[in-house]
Amino acid sequence: MSVTLARVEPSIAGVGDYIELMKPRVMSLVVFTALVGLVVAPGHVHPVIGFAALLCIAVGAGAAGALNMWYDADIDARMARTAGRPIPRGRVTPGEAAGFGMTLAVFSVVALGLLVNWIAAALLAFTICFYVVIYTIWLKRSTPQNIVIGGAAGALPPIIGWAAATGSIAIEPVVLFLIIFFWTPPHFWALSLYRTEDYIRAGVPMLPVVAGAAETRRQILFYTLLLAPLGATPWFLGYASPLYGMVALAAGAVMIALALRVCAERQGHAASKQMFAFSILYLFLLFAMLLVDRMSGGLGGQLLGHFAV
């Protein structure tokens, strides 16, 4: 028996390639929503502990991104949107990405546990496992419900942030989780409507590929109708100011209007593109308002009350 050892070329991967593996744009959204979970939690968190928690969550999100790129390298190579990622471009080998992702995953979870608390660390570990194993390895290639269920991974950061601050879980961060959870399908399906060819080429069973554009448009409207009132729930539950409530309801109304336009669209993808772009602004607006609310000690509500009188 002879064993042939493959000759591996020395790596040419630069620092930028490894940063790209961590999906910095997704990471920034994760950090932002986790920050809101951390800030709206009751009590005071020392800034250094808060910073350490966010750093660990950011690295954990980066680890999940790298592991996703490792497993999805074959799909990425066939899609225009992802063909320029480090593995399809030949800058980083799949093995390097897997090693990098695993190292960061273990490091971030253990560091979060030791520096902050083990509830937050367990939630971070669950999030990484859910994103990589349940979403990337299992659901993404097997069901059009991939992003609905897989969206749970992207929705967990506010709960991790809250747990980092309090060491427990409560209804407030669960509502934030639900907002992101119900926001994910309209957001991604709007994108997939004008990237359908890409998904067909890659063999990913996204909803427009499997059920057609008309059904996808209906589903977008259905989830947006659930999302709009849910977005204002923090105000209904009393932990956000009326100003937040007004902004959430107004932004929700715009989302519904855009979803209706997507439903009515028969030619071109202008409405889908608008929906995709506005959905990012919608989520950012809601979480930024929660942050402003908390930072200003409910100033928004006080101002609104002042004008009402």
């Binding site: 020395p10 790596s11 040419i12 991967a13 630069g14 620092v15 490894y18």
Partner: peptide, 16 residues
């Protein structure tokens, strides 16, 4: 033997 590009990349990774 590492090429100039490989050496530069390795040095950048080490610094990071």
């Amino acid at each position: 033997k590492l090429t100039e590009q490989q050496l530069r990349a390795r040095r950048a990774r080490s610094i990071a």
